[in-house]
Design a protein around this nucleic acid. Structure first.
Lengths: 339, 339
DNA sequence: GTGAAAGCGCTAACAC
DNA sequence: GTGTTAGCGCTTTCAC
């Protein structure tokens, strides 16, 4: 790989001049600049990032921390963030972390080894030393899809509790009373969406029955299926189900089908996130839409301001959600055979 | 961020000793090594990657080039590669590239700016200068999911033509004669799977009708839906459909449903890839399974050998595929209302 | 406008 | 076993 010195020799100027020309700085005679740029194109010279970040003490790179099992919602989200960040002139480096202390620590070490310009967390971590680093010593941080009480980071997310409540209100409005819940034990959104579920039940004066809810170890299709199976075994006579994510909902619908039940004729189902595939399913899934584009764009924009030093006071940016009604729900009185 | 010099001062030794201790080299008195390691833990010192790769002339990082619109198959694949590579001690850096020259060139510049230990292509690029770089001047390269004629890279993939033929043979064996195809215009697998489609038709002595096939601009759910709609408008009386990817198949099934047709009662559908969600769909999708785990593992293993210099002669590693029969197909005679 | 020189943080000879 | 030194490729003062 050709270096700045090689290029300097070829151009018959000093490395400083090459540097100035390549980086578009002033004080380079136009004709020399042109000659250098032509040579750059010809030789395919690209400045070495390591050397550059070494002297600049920065990398023009934003790290994105994301669960290694990222779901389709997160997948769509990180693409929009990546694209927005690119628009602001930043590169992106992904850090996939598992839900375990060792993996988090490893990620933390990698984060520290790089002079990142910023860090976006698309993933809640648990290790205290991770947050310690983020709060003190790390470059600017933005939490996306969640916030953290007591800690003062910028965060971009929806009101999870209210959103879950809205989904539930829809089912309740349809006349459903016996509504199940499949949520997960990890991540705060699992608890928050469950909280919205409970709040909606309370608000409607429906007595909550703990037989109606199940909490699974991860937000996968298979866990959705398994969770619904457990619910079915309890024979609680549910006419509707609220799932904490679309993946869980899809798995649950499958379990219902396997049990010979129809969605929505027997059981109505509402999911959460509004991932791409929901509208292609049979039945198309009713769900709560998180504003993915807006979330990603906003996150990138805040990060960019933070890096530029234009923003200081931390705070939450709470975005709106939207109930998207599709085919997977029906008025309760129509339910033929509750689960 | 604390540096090696700071640590040296704290430990009362020279930077060299710190370096030796941290990197587990010989020639460090056990007690000093211990003291240094304790200090490392205490201070949270992590060697700066830029400085390290600067002197080592390598990064212990493998670049993975992947389409920015990567589908679920590629998503699953890159996770397994990432994990395997991690097992071999390599970090991973993703390069998302769009299907356009400018994006490829940009990716190329980023690739050059880093002293990567290797590059894995999960994405076919088109720009000649990209392949020029890969063939000459780049670190070791492995192509995954495709190969490239005339160029001598290591590649790991399935026999796309044979796999598509197998999918088609299944439909033909079920008595189907009028079989549609939805494939894409980009990437060689789109053409290869279409070739397998044609070959199977030929082998069965079925006269091909160009009204049966449609090529869409991208492999998305929506393009699958649109493609199937176009096919439906032609009224070719299809009793089965072969889709070049599962996403396309899912979209096509949706179009069929929207047209009031049943899968598989009216039309049988076979996809390709066997992404996670296929078995949760209604109907569960019959498809060709690519051995994702094996592909990812093999790709990482070859890359690791290449970097270690243990492997030289390039060549293709062709992995087996498998027809996975699920609910989306039915014997032709059962077809009630062809499309 | 341009070049010489210093230095970013680290590792690897090479002395000792 | 350990410290000193040079240098990886680049940018940026500071002379000129």
């Amino acid at each position: 790989m050709i270096s700045i010195k090689d290029l300097a020799r070829l151009a018959g100027v000093s490395p400083s001049t090459i540097s100035r020309a390549v980086n578009g700085k002033k004080y380079v005679k136009p004709e020399i600049r042109e000659r250098v740029l032509a040579l750059v194109k010809e030789t395919g010279y690209v400045p070495n990032n390591a050397a550059r970040s070494m002297v600049l003490q920065r990398t023009f790179t934003v790290g994105i921390v994301i669960p290694d099992t990222f779901n389709m919602f997160q997948r769509q989200l990180f693409s929009t963030i990546e694209r927005s960040l690119e628009g602001f002139g930043y590169r992106t480096m992904f850090y996939f972390v598992k839900w375990e202390a060792e993996s988090e620590l490893k990620c933390l070490r990698r984060l520290k080894a790089e002079k990142l310009d910023g860090i976006i967390m698309l993933h809640e971590v648990t290790h205290p030393s991770f947050y310690e680093y983020l709060a003190d010593g790390a470059p600017p941080v933005v939490l996306c899809t969640f916030s953290r009480e007591g800690l003062t980071f910028h965060s971009v997310h929806v009101d999870e509790v209210a959103a879950a409540k809205a989904g539930m209100a829809h089912l309740i409005g349809l006349g459903h009373r016996r509504i199940g819940l499949v949520s997960g034990i990890h991540f705060s959104f699992g608890a928050q969406r469950a909280e919205g579920y409970r709040a909606a039940l309370d608000a409607a004066g429906i007595d909550y029955d703990e037989n109606w809810t199940v909490f699974v170890p991860s937000y996968t299709l298979e866990e959705g299926r398994l969770g619904m199976k457990r619910l079915l075994e309890r024979g609680a006579g549910l006419t509707a189900l609220f799932a904490a994510t679309d993946e869980l909902a899809i798995g649950a619908v499958r379990a219902l089908h396997e049990a010979g039940l129809s969605v929505p004729d027997d059981v109505s189902v509402v999911g959460f996130d509004d991932i791409d595939i929901t509208e292609y399913l049979a039945p198309a899934l009713t769900t709560i839409r998180q504003p993915i584009q807006e979330m990603g764009g906003k996150t990138a924009a805040i990060m960019s301001e933070l890096i530029a030093g234009e923003k200081k006071n931390e705070g939450s940016t709470v975005l709106g959600f939207e109930l998207v009604v599709r085919e997977s729900r029906r008025p309760a009185e129509a339910a033929r055979r509750p689960a």
